[in-house]
Design a protein around this nucleic acid. Structure first.
Lengths: 192, 192
DNA sequence: CTGATTTTGTACTGATCTGTAAAGAAAGAG
DNA sequence: CTCTTTCTTTACAGATCAGTACAAAATCAG
């Protein structure tokens, strides 16, 4: 019982996620969070305890929405090569279209030293592992159907592809050269 | 004429580079910079104007020292494959041995939204382009000597390898799993 | 209704932030 | 020596920082 909350926790975390995604952890002030979530300081601290805990919630939320959508994209129809290529092409379109160059929140959280506590690193590791696993499964399928050469362990191939994927997102942070990014895609797909 | 400086500009930029490398741009305070460089606030602002200009100097300095050393590593003896593999293996050793997980300053500057002005992005782009070019040259050599298959354009191969390289450094930020990182290396080298 | 409980809004804390002002110190020019 | 110029030191500015204290408001149990 007691007075009910006037907001949806999820909507607040969504809004906070957007801010952390745009500005990073250190550059985001609690004032920014209050303004973008619409909450007063009291409510925000009562509900989430600290800026850092809200950051962790935001990363979790990112995993549950954006990252999950990426993984589902891998489950669509088409050949394995096509699906992996589409994953990267979609990222190129999304990243280049975003003027704020937010990129991937998990990658941002991985690289920003400020705010990278063991808790945050663990959340990021989990997202990375989820992608690795999804890629590995898909590549194993490709190998078993004969679409992909079956010489190397699927996990190794998945890890190499994943690495190219994150590298692509790093490059997209500072370049507008679509052809350069497309070369990465072709190279990564050719390496399967 | 006038009173001579009591410090070496280069030594100060070196010290500042270390701080920005450890903590990132936003999380580094001018107080931190004064303490680590040994300069008073007045001297620091007199010599460098602002925290952000010192940040740019630090990135330039990183390019001239650390990044340059990486490029020279590519110019050593050995087969092309060996040199590219050694580049990545060296990075794994260095990144995993660093408890602060600083990684690559240019990559950090690329991903941190705070402080990523057009000036900083330009400096990062230049470093990325330098690596791309060095990789491209080396791969062209490998193709011309017959060590590497000559079917694909060297620039495309270089860009894919570069992407895997930066992806590797992202993964190394949050994982201790050396085998996972070694898989990336094998995958990237196999894709040449 | 009353009392218990939670949320909300606001005011406030002390610390820290980047950057500046100004006076004193150190050098060379003449 | 004196004058000019630059650097160093210190104190300070005003803003902003993350987080808290507390009273008013809202709800439900009884």
């Amino acid at each position: 019982m007691g007075r009910p909350r006037e907001f949806s926790d999820q909507a607040v975390v969504d809004a906070a996620m957007e801010v952390f995604w745009e500005k990073g952890y250190e550059a985001t002030s609690t004032q920014d969070l209050c303004e973008r979530t619409g909450l007063g300081r009291g409510s925000l601290y009562n509900a989430f305890g600290s800026k850092h805990r809200l950051y962790e919630e935001a990363i979790r939320r990112y995993a549950a929405t954006r990252a999950e959508a990426q993984l589902e994209l891998l489950a669509t129809a088409g050949s394995v090569r096509e699906r992996l290529r589409d994953l990267m092409l979609g990222v190129i379109d999304a990243d280049l279209a975003d003027p704020g160059r937010r990129g991937c929140l998990a990658l941002n959280a991985a690289t920003e030293a400020g705010g990278r506590t063991e808790g945050v690193a663990g959340l990021v590791r989990r997202q990375f592992a989820d992608l690795e696993q999804a890629l590995c499964r898909l590549i194993a399928i490709g190998q078993s159907t004969g679409e992909l050469p079956a010489g190397r362990p699927p996990l190794q191939v998945a890890r190499a592809f994943q690495s190219a994927y994150y590298g692509l997102r790093v490059l997209a942070k500072v370049t507008d050269d679509r052809n350069a990014l497309l070369d990465v895609v072709e190279g990564a797909v050719a390496a399967l």
